[in-house]
Design a binder for these strands. Structure first.
Length: 258
DNA sequence: ATGTCTCGATCCTCGAGA
């Protein structure tokens, strides 16, 4: 089973790119972030014609997450994270597909830091970690896939010194990510590419793509049951070079016998 | 290189967010 995550940066503005990528790579499951569409503006018909069933959680202008699956509609197991009744952002959706648990997340950016947005990010990470702790010991494979807005380590950013004050790379952010992994999660892309620079995001500005000034911020975390089945992980880097493309590239894992 | 992109409100341009 191939499971992908892709921050599309507006599902409607990016629809041609999304459909082209789905047709080309045929993931079994695709987690999408930054739909930037209200619930009723999700392109249900086009997704269906592309061969995918979907659940999604939209929001006006910002955020929004979806889980697409070829085999059938994901059985939803969660929408939003508990722990903050004032949090109305559409950033977390969870379901099962063919016996595999899939969490799709769009973790808050957190800039500018320090400040209320950074505080929200760290609180959100705590709430997410609480849910992850419930999932990690599942006997079934679980994959937590999404735009984490976390640069895990220096290797994952083209200019570590230039990013040290950024919410994506501040010590509190990196420590929260390490605590999450310490529950027993495997960062699939890093696990299969130790010591290598692998980027998933290149800013639109300053010729970042041309200069390969990238970040690795899109992650797929695997619980032990999933990690035992991991056979491949990669980034569909070429998609970042397409016309009218997202600033993120699709990132994926392949699990054996699922 | 205050650089690019999207959405939404208001108006046909700008601010917010990323």
């Amino acid at each position: 089973m191939k499971i992908a995550t892709y921050n599309v940066n507006s599902v409607n503005a990016r629809l041609p790119v999304l459909l082209r990528w789905l047709a080309e790579t045929r993931p079994d499951v695709a987690c999408l972030q930054e739909l930037k569409a209200v619930q009723e503006k999700f392109p249900t018909e086009a997704i269906r014609e592309a061969g995918y069933h979907a659940i999604w959680h939209g929001q006006k202008a910002w955020n929004g997450v979806a889980i697409l699956a070829r085999a059938g509609e994901p059985a939803e197991t969660g929408r939003g994270l508990p722990g903050d009744p004032d949090d109305f952002h559409s950033r977390y959706l969870e379901g099962t597909v063919g016996g595999v648990g899939v969490g799709c997340l769009y973790l808050p950016n957190g800039n500018p830091a320090p400040g209320p947005k950074f505080d929200y990010k760290l609180r959100w990470m705590d709430r997410f970690a609480a849910r992850a702790a419930e999932l990690v010991a599942s006997p079934d494979p679980v994959v937590l896939a999404g735009d984490y807005n976390v640069i895990p380590e220096e290797l994952d950013v083209y200019d570590p010194a230039g990013w040290e004050a950024d919410a994506l790379f501040r010590p509190e952010t990196c420590e929260a990510y390490r605590r999450l992994l310490a529950q027993g999660w495997t960062d699939a892309l890093r696990h299969l590419n130790p010591g290598e620079r692998v980027f998933t995001f290149w800013d639109y500005t300053a010729g970042a793509w041309r200069r390969n000034a990238g970040l690795r911020i899109d992650h797929l975390l695997l619980n032990p049951a999933a990690a035992g089945r991991l056979v491949a992980a990669g980034v569909d880097r070429h998609v970042r070079g397409w016309e009218k493309t997202s600033d993120h590239a699709p990132t994926w894992v392949e699990l054996r016998d699922v």
